[in-house]
Write a protein that binds this DNA or RNA. Structure first.
Lengths: 243, 243
DNA sequence: TTTTGTGAAGACATTCACAGCG
DNA sequence: CGCTGTGAATGTCTTCACAAAA
């Protein structure tokens, strides 16, 4: 896992020879290698993955930034700049090797190994997530399921994950080395569950409850809120009525 | 529906009396009333709704921008500026009336009436969405369900929506005045379904398929991609390993 | 030639800081 | 007094335009 970012910013500033920088300590140099990567760029990396998959399916081996831009409706310069934050992946005069770029994006996104996740909440949404086959192809797997009422949900078929009581959350997460929690419980319960997940040692949380939850800064939280997406849609639809 | 935006930019520039502007046609005036609202602001409006609901539940009647900011971890000036795009909702020296602001946000977001939606795809995800009670409290309702194979899915109980064949998409959407489509079908089928929805006359689409779909510019598309959210999480988790 | 990678310019978004109002 | 509403300042992101490379 630790080598996931070896390719990052691997460029040496051309104005400085290695020898020179060996002898003289230069204040700006460490800053240069830690150029800040915009959040907006990171969000687009998944889209690039998506369209590269599509291109692979169509048998395309080399794609220019213009071609990629067309597929995700972005500016070509945007794509070149985004990729350039992480290295020099293209060939001037030709474009990007689709397969190669795809591999590099996987490394950058940290999905070279499979992330184990714990699902909390086996209601409607939880069950759908559990059945969601696409997770695995993206490098994620639900490895344990918890619910306040372990009896509920679909009857447990053989080969299905057992629904565990909340009491066993911490030991199970430790034992199975789970690093991500998915919160699919009602809003009222969400903050409590987040606290338990943090206590159990997860480092990332995907929260489906439409409420603001907090966690220490070393735990990353991503909120997925359907209501908010629909409201955004509604805003734009109402606005069109005005014209 | 058309009155949903009457409160927008209802401020009269103080430098011009009403009489004055009645008599003389001023070029800049129409521009002033159409000040462009940042997308980032619009995305935050749903969050404001969420924290106002929370405040209401706690019995809070008046809240300052500082108080609201603390609840959604934003800068107070951000909140004041966002709200100021749509009118003067606050009282100087006091703050914002929670109830009143909530009502105004509903009008701004266009959720004063209930939006009817058609769900396409009655698989795992579709079924979960169908059972998702929260939609209604946000002003949205699934009014018709379609699937390539109408027989599948949960056995149809009385009082449950029938699963209709795709053939009936267009007439049903017309007949029931449905304006939003939810795409919960596999990636390969997504673009085709989007085309059918557009043809049937919907104006907004919520797409759960992890693929880039296109529609004419008069149809608004919002993508919800779980894989992409997880990849974003993965990126941040991998990065923390580096330090 | 073609297309990348990248400074510089431009567009957009956030925060500051304070006048103005209750 | 306290807090909003808002220009001005700052910060961030996107796009342009071109030198450098294959």
């Amino acid at each position: 896992m630790a080598d996931a970012f070896e390719t990052f910013n691997r460029k040496t500033p051309r104005c400085l020879s290695t020898k020179f920088s060996d002898r003289i300590q230069i204040r700006e140099l460490p800053e240069l290698s830690k150029k800040k990567i915009p959040e907006a760029t990171i969000r687009r990396l998944s889209t690039y993955q998506q369209i590269l998959n599509q291109a692979t399916d169509e048998g395309i081996q080399i794609a220019s930034s213009a071609e990629l831009a067309k597929r995700c409706r972005l500016n070509p310069a945007q794509i070149r700049k985004d990729l350039a934050y992480f290295g020099e992946f293209g060939v001037r005069g030709k474009g990007y090797d689709v397969k190669n770029l795809q591999e590099n994006l996987k490394i950058i996104l940290g999905i070279t190994t499979i992330w184990k996740m714990a699902l909390i909440g086996a209601g409607n949404l939880g069950s759908a997530l559990l059945a969601h086959k696409e997770f695995l192809s993206h490098g994620f797997i639900i490895d344990a399921v918890f619910d306040k009422y372990p009896g509920r949900g679909r009857p447990q078929k053989p080969g299905t994950l057992p629904i565990r009581p909340m009491k066993t959350l911490k030991p199970t997460i430790h034992q199975r080395s789970i690093e991500i929690g998915i919160v699919a419980v009602p809003s009222e319960a969400a903050q409590g569950v987040v606290a338990q997940l943090v206590e159990a040692g997860v480092r990332g949380i995907l929260n489906f409850a439409p409420t603001q939850v907090t966690a220490p800064s070393n735990v990353t939280i991503k909120n997925v809120d359907l209501g908010s997406e629909l409201e955004h849609l509604s805003y734009h639809l109402s606005k069109l009525d005005e014209e």
